[in-house]
């Protein structure tokens, strides 16, 4: 039986990397006494898959994993048992059964972010015009990756990975945005990169805070 687990990871736990999050979950599952299926082979590992990794330093209120249980079980009890053994900054928000054969990553359509911007001398009209400009022309992101001590630069149009940007709140130079990020087989854009793009479009950003809110699946 497959169960989808939605969880939040906030506060100090935002400093835990993706790999460490995997281990944290593996151990929690073991402590909770939840029997999940193991892969075959020399070094068996528990079967579970992530929808999408989260960068270090971001909080999330809606990340997802899928686990495969040995026996059928009420998903609600899975949530209770996990929360009992998880640290307070890492808690399961929801669990439900899944019958979809596609992986979570394959079904992931949008990743929702909340971005709080602290602006300088910017009103809503000005902001909106910058936002419109963003979607009108190519927005080149240059991502530098260091692989085996060699610098590699990936260039892409950041616009392709943003479905829409909603303004949730805007007053006194403080804007709250809801961003629908697109996750495709070509990857995704990082929200820090979006912020940088907005800055190059002359948006006067003093400070900002990004939180991952939720994910929308097919």
């Amino acid at each position: 039986m497959k169960v989808i687990v939605k969880y939040k990871k906030v506060g100090r736990l935002k400093f835990i990397s993706h790999l460490d999050t995997i281990r944290l979950l593996q151990r929690a599952i073991r402590r909770a006494g939840i029997k999940i299926l193991y892969s075959q082979g020399y070094n068996p590992h528990p079967k579970f898959s992530f929808a999408m990794p989260l960068s270090l330093g971001l909080e999330t209120y809606g990340d997802y994993i899928e686990i495969e249980l040995e026996d059928s079980e009420n998903p609600n009890t899975i949530k209770e048992r996990l929360n009992k053994v998880l640290p307070e900054y890492f808690q399961v928000v929801d669990t439900k059964e899944s019958e979809n054969s596609k992986t979570l990553a394959a079904r992931l359509k949008y990743v929702l972010y909340k971005i709080d911007l602290e602006l300088e001398n910017t009103d809503l009209d000005e902001f909106n015009s910058i936002k419109d400009k963003f979607f009108k022309e190519e927005q080149i992101v240059e991502r530098i990756k260091i692989k085996k001590r060699r610098k590699k630069v990936k260039r892409f149009d950041g616009r392709k990975f943003i479905e829409k940007i909603e303004v949730v709140d805007f007053k006194n130079n403080n804007a709250t945005l809801k961003v629908y990020g697109i996750f495709s087989n070509e990857g995704a854009i990082k929200m820090e990169e979006l912020v940088e793009l907005l800055k190059t479009l002359t948006l006067n950003i003093k400070d900002y805070k990004i939180v991952r809110e939720d994910m929308i699946f097919e």
Binding site: R12, L13, F15, L56, G57, P87
Partner: peptide, 16 residues
């Protein structure tokens, strides 16, 4: 400063 250092979880605590 935690966001700019290597392995910030060395300093954050809050472990189980």
């Amino acid at each position: 400063i935690l966001i700019s250092v290597e392995k910030p979880a060395r300093y954050t605590g809050g472990e189980l």
